[in-house]
C-alpha cells in the first residue's frame, strides 16, 4: 500500500463528511428548518475522497454540485451559514448550497447554475494561469448531464490548443436529473469523446477512492505539463435528484443492477481498512462521530447568525464595482 494511514483516514473522512452532511440536511429539512432545493450525492462519495487530497494551494476547484467534497477547502461554519441565507456566511448567504465561491483566497470557483456552462469559464481560469506563468491546475467537476453541453467540447478545444493546465472531471452517475445516461448519449464512456480534441480521456470505477485518486493524480500531473485531461468517474446515484424526490423514474431492476455494479463505497472502504489492519471498527466509528459533531456545531453556529435581507443584495453598488456616471 503506497498510502500512509493518515492519507487513508483523510480519504475516509472526506467520504463520511459528504454522506453525513447530506444526512444532516435531510434531518433539518424534515424539521422544516431548511428551504430550497438540495441535491445529494449518495453512493458517489469516493470520487471526491480520491480528488480532494490532491488539490494543492496553487490549484483551483469548481466543485461538483452534489457531493460536498469542497468542504475540505472551506470553513464549514461559514459554508453552512452561506447555505442557510446567513449574512455572515460565504458570499453573504446569497449563494445557497451551490453558488458559494471565493476565487482569490480559497481558489473555490463559482458553480454556474446553468450546469455545464462553467466548463468554459474555468478553462479561462487555466488560461490566466498559463498566460501569467503561474503554477497550479484547474479542476472542473460536472455530471454526465453537464457533459452533454457543447461548452465542454469548446472548452477541450481551447485547452488542447493552448496547452492549458486543466482537468475536466465528469461524474457519470448513470442519471441526469431523471434521465438515465443511456437516454442521453450512445457513448458507453463519455471519456472517449476527449480523444477528438487531443485531450487525454480516461474512465475510472468510482467506488474505490484509491482507484479514483490514481486516475486523478495522473490527470493532474499531465495537466501541470500543459496536457489537459478528462477523467470520467463511473458511479451510481443512489438517491433522488433533490431531497424529497420520490425517484419513481428509476426501475427496481435497473437500481439492483447498478447497485451491484456500483456498491456503497463507504462500507467497502471500511472493510478494506479493517482487513488491512489500518483501522479498527472503533476508530472508524470515532471518525464518523467526530465529523457528525463538526457538522452539528457548524449548523448550531449558523442558526445563530443574522439573516440575509433583501436590502443587503440591492443597489447598483452591489451589481457594479464602479457606479460612476448616472443611472445604472
Amino acid at each position: 500500500m503506497a498510502y500512509t494511514k493518515e492519507q487513508l483516514v483523510e480519504m475516509y473522512k472526506i467520504m463520511q463528511r459528504g454522506r453525513l452532511f447530506d444526512k444532516k440536511i435531510a434531518t433539518e429539512s424534515k424539521k422544516g428548518k431548511l428551504v430550497g432545493m438540495f441535491h445529494f450525492g449518495t453512493n458517489q462519495e469516493a470520487f471526491e475522497a480520491g480528488l480532494m487530497p490532491l488539490i494543492g494551494p496553487d490549484d483551483y476547484l469548481k466543485p461538483y454540485h452534489r457531493n460536498h467534497g469542497c468542504l475540505s477547502m472551506c470553513d464549514m461554519k461559514l459554508y453552512v451559514a452561506g447555505m442557510l441565507e446567513r449574512a455572515t456566511g460565504y458570499n453573504n448567504g446569497i449563494g445557497g448550497d451551490y453558488h458559494q465561491q471565493d476565487i482569490a483566497d480559497l481558489h473555490l470557483l463559482p458553480l454556474d447554475g446553468l450546469i455545464g456552462e462553467d466548463w468554459l469559464h474555468d478553462t479561462g481560469v487555466a488560461m490566466a494561469l498559463k498566460l501569467q506563468n503561474k503554477p497550479g491546475v484547474v479542476i472542473n467537476c460536472q455530471g454526465d448531464g453537464g457533459a452533454q453541453m457543447g461548452a465542454l467540447y469548446e472548452a477541450m478545444n481551447f485547452a488542447s490548443l493552448f496547452s492549458l493546465p486543466i482537468v475536466y472531471v465528469v461524474v457519470n452517475n448513470g442519471v441526469a436529473m431523471t434521465t438515465p445516461t443511456e437516454k442521453e448519449c450512445k457513448c458507453s464512456e463519455i471519456s472517449g469523446r476527449a480523444a477528438g480534441f487531443n485531450v487525454k480521456g480516461v474512465s475510472v470505477w468510482g467506488q474505490d477512492p484509491i482507484a479514483v485518486r490514481e486516475a486523478m493524480e495522473a490527470a493532474i500531473e499531465s495537466a501541470r505539463r500543459g496536457e489537459p485531461a478528462l477523467v470520467e468517474v463511473m458511479t451510481y446515484r443512489k438517491c433522488g435528484h433533490y431531497f424529497g424526490d420520490p425517484r419513481d423514474y428509476e426501475t427496481a431492476e435497473r437500481d439492483a443492477r447498478m447497485s451491484e455494479k456500483y456498491p456503497d463505497p463507504i462500507p467497502r472502504f471500511e472493510k478494506m481498512l479493517q482487513e488491512m489492519g489500518i483501522c479498527t471498527e472503533e476508530e472508524l466509528k470515532g471518525y464518523a462521530k467526530e465529523i457528525k459533531n463538526e457538522i452539528a456545531e457548524a449548523f448550531e453556529w449558523a442558526y445563530q447568525q443574522p439573516r440575509l435581507t433583501g436590502d443587503m443584495t440591492k443597489g447598483a453598488d452591489k451589481v457594479f464595482s464602479n457606479t460612476e456616471g448616472g443611472k445604472l
Binding site: 476565487i103 468554459l120 469559464h121 478553462t123 479561462g124 481560469v125 472548452a155 478545444n157
Partner: peptide, 16 residues
C-alpha cells in the same frame, strides 16, 4: 467559437 472565446475571457477576467 464566440461562446468559447467569450467564456474563456470571462474566466481570465475573474483572475484579474
Amino acid at each position: 467559437d464566440e461562446k468559447g472565446f467569450t467564456g474563456v475571457a470571462v474566466g481570465m477576467a475573474w483572475m484579474g
